[in-house]
Design a protein around this nucleic acid. Structure first.
Lengths: 243, 243
DNA sequence: TGAAGATTTTTGGCATACCAAATACCACGA
DNA sequence: TCGTGGTATTTGGTATGCCAAAAATCTTCA
């Protein structure tokens, strides 16, 4: 059962090491199911209907063409993420967050992002910091964010993720991404509001300026206050969205 | 197949609702296995041996007296937590963190704790804040922390967890607990160091004072700097612990 | 007609069997 | 003795089947 890795196994070619990339790990059905279900959950509007959204193992296994086993493992993973909650003998329900929980998550996000800003002032390159402006290059006084809310919202998220990434901290990046996934479904309904969008862009630019100035305390404060502002906004105006 | 819920199902007792606590959900084998494995992993000293620690599904299922199915689901959950990593056709390995990762986690912890401190200054009761001193009531000039490192280390962790809890923020609490679990195994080897322990207690007291004074900015800064100090310490002195 | 009660169906939990890849092991031959 | 090739074993991945609890549906009788 010789593997066609090399034609010959002579020691002479020990370090010629042709670019063998460990073949393809062929992600398992479990992981495929996890990704598929996660995407599906994030895509649907959980807050649209009053009745809870349920998932059915057998239906999903048939739908994805695999057995229940990998489906169940994927669901166990999603439950760890806090996206679903399985109730024994009852069903699997997609978790709906309350307004208080969303606000709480945004606060944690603010904490992580302000730390990212702090780190950036001491390690990031000037060039990379300045590049953050590019996310908003399509917006100006002639093309206001509040007139292209959908587009601005995407730029907004991309900006925040790029900002965190500049911290070079995998933990901050991962934790923030997780939080953003939860806030997101709700986000599209709130961030888009014109009244807040108007103040968003100037605040972003102010953050970038503080970062460029290497003003650690100021950058941290501006990043924190900006996101805490969103939390306060949601807390004050997000009432109607939660049943 | 009548269930002995009530002797009679007359509408008259519809809202008498005797404290029925949903019976016992009898935590599933999956969850039992998850808890058991998690505890086992946290208890062992992963950094002791040079070779990676492996887990065997079949051995575990036999050990815990259940089939592989719930074991595999538990492992899928642990993998989400970042405690283990399963390599197809190779095995399940308990993840070992590098020094850089531990430092990174401590920084994130600092971010979350400083936000907790911020929130506490605006919402917590004076009484609850002052109660934080109790964790250190067994230490004083006649009984120095550095002479009872093991005991002080426990008090230290308890203090930090109590602090975060005072924020009344479930997200901050959960995220911090997760981070602490990862840092912990390493922590017993570093926090215990005498040189740092000596400065730890005064800093804790300073944090409490700022909280009592309702000085938001100061409390936040002290909480952040205290934990960032730990991060810096680990970064500087934790070399030898990672192979 | 209506509701208690029995029956069927649905749903998640768990055990088991088999597969294929990766590895370990072993015998044979130069 | 060394190593080459093949076979047995190990290990995670997946499919299936059955169980019991809970819900839905049907039955029956006052």
């Amino acid at each position: 059962m010789s593997e066609p890795r090399e034609t010959k196994a002579s020691p002479a070619m020990a370090d010629t090491d042709i670019a063998i990339v460990r073949i393809a790990p062929e992600t398992s059905f479990k992981n495929k199911a996890y990704e598929a279900l996660k995407e599906a959950i994030l895509k649907m509007d959980i807050y649209a209907t009053p009745e809870p959204v349920m998932l059915d193992e057998r239906a999903l296994s048939e739908r994805l063409g695999v057995s229940r086993t990998p489906i169940r493992e994927a669901i166990a993973m999603l439950e760890q993420d806090g996206f679903v909650k399985t109730v024994p003998r009852r069903g699997i329900v997609v978790v709906r967050r309350t307004k208080a929980e969303i606000v709480d998550m945004i606060r944690a996000w603010a904490a992580l992002e302000s730390m990212a800003a702090r780190l950036i002032t001491t390690t990031a390159r000037k060039k990379d910091i300045s590049a953050l402006r590019d996310f908003f290059k399509d917006f100006n006084n002639d093309r206001l964010p509040q007139d292209h809310i959908e587009e601005y919202s995407r730029a907004n998220i991309a900006f925040h993720q790029a900002l965190i990434s500049l911290s070079e901290s995998p933990v901050l990046v991962d934790l923030t991404n997780d939080l953003l996934l939860h806030v997101r479904g709700y986000r599209q309904l709130t961030i888009g509001r014109k009244d807040r969008t108007a103040t968003s862009l100037p605040e972003h630019l102010a953050i970038i300026e503080a970062l460029e100035a290497r003003d650690t305390e100021l950058a941290e404060k501006r990043a924190r206050d900006h996101t805490l502002g969103l939390a306060a906004y949601v807390e004050a105006h997000g009432q109607e969205l939660f049943t």
